[in-house]
């Protein structure tokens, strides 16, 4: 995947994710709806590739207003990833040379790698994650399970022990998937399935779409480094 294609695909996927987020606020009782209607319109222009530099810049400014409105990200990690992608796209468009544009877009790819590796690292250093207790806590009393029925997973400690280690090993080994294009595609597919499972079990649908949005940057960086 070349740089232009990867950037364009990221713009389209981001536009879709931002529209999806924004629609949820359009029916809000408060005037926040105007912020999100504006964001939807700008996202439409982004998807169509019209005035991309200015549209990205306007979306970046709007993201600051939305951050102020909610006194922080509305949905924690997924909103932080949205901001990271949006601001990287904006800076990539604003940079004067191709090399600088590539550095900015490459930064997004590196952050995507780190998002898995660091998440795995902070888990494996915690004894509760190593013995499966942490995942049991997630199902037993955290706010995350999407339904009460899913809390019954807490009654299967061996299953959760295996699931905990599977998640930690996958997250820690994810950076190694860049060795070949095939391993990278397999790694990204497994990662997407992991986010899909999180969306079904914990209702974290925004994570699924926004992490997918960052994948073209890593596919491009892999091609840029290993296939030239």
């Amino acid at each position: 995947m070349n740089f232009d294609d990867a950037l364009r695909l990221t713009e389209i996927l981001l536009a879709f994710a931002l529209v999806q987020h924004s629609v949820e606020h359009v029916f809000s009782a408060k005037s926040e709806r105007y912020l999100f209607i504006t964001r939807m319109l700008l996202s439409g222009l982004l998807a169509l590739g019209i005035g991309t530099t200015w549209v990205c810049s306007a979306l970046a400014v709007l993201s600051l207003l939305i951050l102020r409105w909610f006194h922080g990200p509305y949905n924690g990690g997924s909103d932080r990833m949205s901001l990271l992608i949006l601001w990287c796209l904006t800076f990539a468009h604003l940079m004067p040379t191709l090399q600088l544009k590539e550095y900015v877009f490459g930064y997004l790819a590196i952050q995507l790698l780190l998002s898995y590796f660091i998440s795995g690292w902070v888990k494996i250093v915690n004894p509760d994650w190593r013995n499966g207790r942490a995942l049991q806590d997630v199902f037993q009393f955290s706010t995350y399970p999407a339904s009460e029925q899913l809390r019954s997973f807490a009654n299967y400690p061996r299953l959760l022990f295996c699931a905990s280690w599977s998640v930690m090993i996958f997250e820690l080994l994810f950076p190694l998937t860049v060795i070949t294009q095939t391993t990278l595609i397999i790694g990204l597919t497994v990662a997407a399935l992991f986010h899909l499972a999180n969306a079904c079990l914990f209702g974290l649908n925004r994570f699924f779409w926004i992490w997918l949005t960052a994948y073209p940057s890593l596919i491009w960086l892999h091609a840029r480094i290993f296939e030239i």
Binding site: L64, L67, R80, L83, Q111, V122, V138, F141, S142
Partner: peptide, 25 residues
């Protein structure tokens, strides 16, 4: 505060589920 928030997005910590904190209802 807004600047701090945007910087935390541009330089994220990625510490998802590092500890399972007390959970509010």
């Amino acid at each position: 505060k807004t600047l701090k928030l945007i910087l935390s997005a541009l330089f994220p910590s990625w510490r998802f589920f590092d500890v399972i904190a007390p959970s509010p209802r």
